[in-house]
Design a protein around this nucleic acid. Structure first.
Lengths: 255, 255
DNA sequence: GAATTCATCTGGAGA
DNA sequence: TCTCCAGTTGAATTC
């Protein structure tokens, strides 16, 4: 379906268009002067200003002010809408239960409403997530340490889960904690918790923290606690993963 | 300045308008069919689909697909833009340094471009954050327990910080963990960690978990571990805070 | 600048 | 539903 763009001459007219847009569950953007009131888990209030209201077919609403990456207010997928006029203002209310939250938008002036019906949803892929790195390291443990063998992924360990669990060339159990970003003291503490828990269960265990970088305090704590730090280069790993992905694809297209 | 709404008849025309919008740093929404490529801390790729691109005067860009509250891709305030044509496609590139990240949008078709120049930024206030609740409970400890006195806020305790620290009517030290949302097992575990740490330092310590609700497993763990659970009603607390805020304002306006 | 914690966190996987 | 954890997390506060 094609897109539509509308510049209303009155608030009443804008209200009619807005109602249609919401009923037909169109993907829409409303540029307007409004103030917003939110009450639910928190509460917020904003004074009149120019904002962009995004309404999605899935039932979410997002309100952006002229700056910042984050929206000022929002309501997630599955919210319900109601449009009304009150005291010369166009009122858009969005409600959600569980938790019960209400978003009330008081619109003074609508600059434009643009929308599209039945929007085509494009595919979206994210690469180099922690799980992707983890799965690659599981198949290529020598990148972490020579002679290392991985036995388990996401092994439960008391308070949480161990990213990788294996055994080193000397037969000692190894707990591996993986971070996609520079690791701080907290990552070492987390690893130490797992180690303490597993020590009581399986006896001797070593810890390895794998990350692209480490904070000073992380290095210090790791040293005193006997945790080994292994630095990985994300870029070269990304290249390796990409080429292994290509290889796999070649194989499947071959057979 | 007034808003503008534009339905381009060709990609070239759309490109010219887009360039103007970006140069004039207007607050704009572009409804279009596009695919997006991101490379930086992570990398993502998306196939052609209908998306809404939001551009802000502050230099951020946000790309929304037809569902979900979160944007598919984005770039925060302070990014730079470049518009070009290539192989019959309109290309919008957004760059950011530190970290170096690039967002490339390949536009097939523009449904509409709506924008406003010099948007009015409305004020925004958020109430009832965890810190606001914490500060109110610090001044009104009887809401947690009779005879309780608060001695410290955000007291360091090994792995993290204790929300409130005080002494009960029997002279026993008390650690209070506060959650603004329904508390689960993890909140009790966190409190137990603080308790273990402080027990070694100060001797006898009790724990109180304050939250609007508790999960079944949280209740079970709290019972076996001897942690007291105190339920607070966020709504009544919100009203109390609001009225105390009003009282303070009345005082300042009086003197 | 680095480090730490909160968020109306959201979202997803798993039990 | 609850638990756990990643996130291009962002944003604020503290040091």
């Amino acid at each position: 379906m094609s897109g539509e763009c509308f510049t209303p001459s009155s608030l009443e007219e804008a209200g009619r268009v807005l109602k249609q847009v919401l009923e037909q569950r169109r993907f829409a953007a409303i540029l307007c002067r409004c103030s917003v009131n939110y009450k639910g888990r928190g509460s917020s209030w904003s004074s009149p200003g120019d904002r962009l209201i995004v309404v999605k077919p899935s039932g979410s609403i997002i309100i952006h002010g002229p700056q910042g990456f984050k929206p000022e207010n929002w309501q997630p997928d599955g919210s319900t809408f109601a449009v009304s006029m009150s005291e010369g203002r166009l009122i858009l209310v969005s409600m959600r239960k569980n938790p019960r939250e209400t978003l009330t938008i008081e619109i003074e002036k609508v600059y434009s409403i643009t929308s599209i019906g039945n929007p085509v949803k494009g595919a979206f892929y994210m690469y180099m997530s922690e799980s992707e790195i983890r799965d690659y390291l599981k198949e290529n443990p020598q990148l972490i340490e020579d002679g290392l063998r991985i036995l388990e992924v996401e092994k439960p360990a008391g308070p949480g889960y161990v990213d990788l669990y294996g055994i080193d060339k000397n037969g000692v159990n190894v707990v591996i904690e993986l971070k996609r970003v520079r690791a701080g003291e907290d990552a070492v503490k987390q690893l130490l918790q797992y180690l303490e828990f597993l020590k009581r269960k399986t006896g001797r265990v070593r810890g390895i923290l794998v990350a692209p970088g480490f904070t000073e305090s992380a290095v210090r704590l790791a040293y005193t606690a006997g945790v080994r730090l292994v630095q990985i280069d994300l870029k070269s790993l990304s290249d390796r993963i990409a080429s292994s992905r290509r290889r796999t694809r070649d194989l499947t297209s071959f057979f």
